[in-house]
């Protein structure tokens, strides 16, 4: 079975990549400035030598390097990412609590950017060398060149401060006590600005890619064949050009997953969106390295999962893979 084989292969690769990231993470922790025991002690308020040694023993910091590495790796295999030095809470719990908000934000932004990008890109491809087509591409270029965090700030100024249309911070209105549908609506309102901001940059990428890919597909011999059949241009565009043009976009979408995480960090920071991106910013501000690296590992894992999904989608879309050729 081709799919089973594909999934198995990808999972195997994923495990190797994750293992390497764990080792990488461990090395970084060693490089991190400051003595973790001192930081832990600093939290506790006392810093005499005996207490430090106690802490070292308790967290295994007095063990040789390879033992620490083994503990770290086996810990992560059991989903134990250690403790946040500052908050004294397991890193895994912190991340899981924040994960849904991030998935909601990035998922919405992904769908939004993909759909709008493909629509805008096809429109631009159909209007090549016309003013309207050039306008779409100019806009895409501007969105592509604009720093995401700046768009976020400016949209707060315009839509929240100046126009007062949308809330600027948080996931929902604190203290309003909404439940059920009202809560969903409230969250949706809060989602508009962050999701749109995050989507703009990716929409620009998909727009540019779709246009290039469509123009490329339109040059192919099979399009000439389709015209020779007497098919309507609209059918040719949809059935022959667009379908073939979408394949490289699926690949691109997979590659963009990592960028999406980066975008989420900035967007969540500006909008105080309680996801793992915001958590990362907080960890950064407090120099909470264990938490920082835990989030880093987790975001890489998310990207890998997303990559596996895009691989599967690609294999569904391209019969050449389904039948095991090429």
């Amino acid at each position: 079975m081709v799919y089973a084989r594909l999934i198995l292969m990808r999972l195997f690769k994923a495990v190797i990549v994750l293992f390497l990231i764990v080792i990488f993470n461990f090395l970084l922790i060693q490089l991190a400035p400051g003595d973790p025991a001192a930081i832990l002690a600093g939290q506790a308020g006392a810093a005499d030598q005996e207490f430090l040694n106690q802490l070292r023993e308790r967290f295994g910091l007095d063990q040789p390097m390879y033992v620490q590495l083994w503990r770290y790796v086996s810990g992560i295999a059991m989903l134990d990412f250690g403790y946040s030095y500052r908050l004294g809470v397991p890193v895994f719990d912190l991340i899981m609590a924040r994960l849904p908000a991030t998935l909601l934000l990035t998922g919405t932004a992904f769908v939004l950017s993909l759909v709008l990008g493909i629509v805008a890109g096809s429109m631009a491809a159909a209007r090549v060398k016309k003013p309207s087509g050039s306008l779409i591409m100019a806009l895409a270029l501007v969105f592509y060149a604009t720093p995401l965090f700046w768009v976020a700030l400016m949209s707060v100024v315009v839509f929240s401060v100046y126009l007062g249309w949308l809330p600027a911070y948080g996931l929902y209105t604190v203290g309003a006590g909404h439940t059920g549908f009202a809560l969903a609506l409230d969250i949706a309102k809060h989602l508009v600005l962050p999701a749109t901001t995050l989507a703009l940059f990716f929409m620009a990428i998909y727009t540019r890619m779709t246009r290039t890919s469509m123009l490329d597909a339109a040059q192919q011999d099979y399009v000439k064949t389709a015209r020779a059949k007497g098919l309507k241009p609209s059918i040719i565009q949809r059935r022959h050009v667009l379908r073939n043009a979408l394949l490289p976009i699926i690949t691109l979408a997979g590659l963009q997953a990592g960028q999406m995480v980066g975008g989420a960090i900035l967007t969540e920071t500006v909008f105080a969106w309680p996801g793992i991106g915001r958590l990362m910013f907080e960890a950064l501000e407090q120099r909470d390295y264990n938490l920082l690296l835990g989030i880093f590992f987790f975001s890489a894992a998310l990207v890998i999962v997303f990559n596996i999904i895009t691989d599967l989608v690609y294999s569904l879309a391209d019969p050449r893979i389904k039948k095991g050729a090429a």
């Binding site: 192919q220 389709a226 073939n244 019969p319």
Partner: peptide, 24 residues
């Protein structure tokens, strides 16, 4: 013109490898 293509005039091309849509 389109109404004639395929109906009254048919055409075949040089490169059979690329003249068919790979996804259909």
């Amino acid at each position: 013109h389109r109404a004639l293509r395929g109906l009254k005039i048919g055409m075949i091309f040089q490169e059979p490898m690329t003249a068919l849509n790979p996804l259909m």
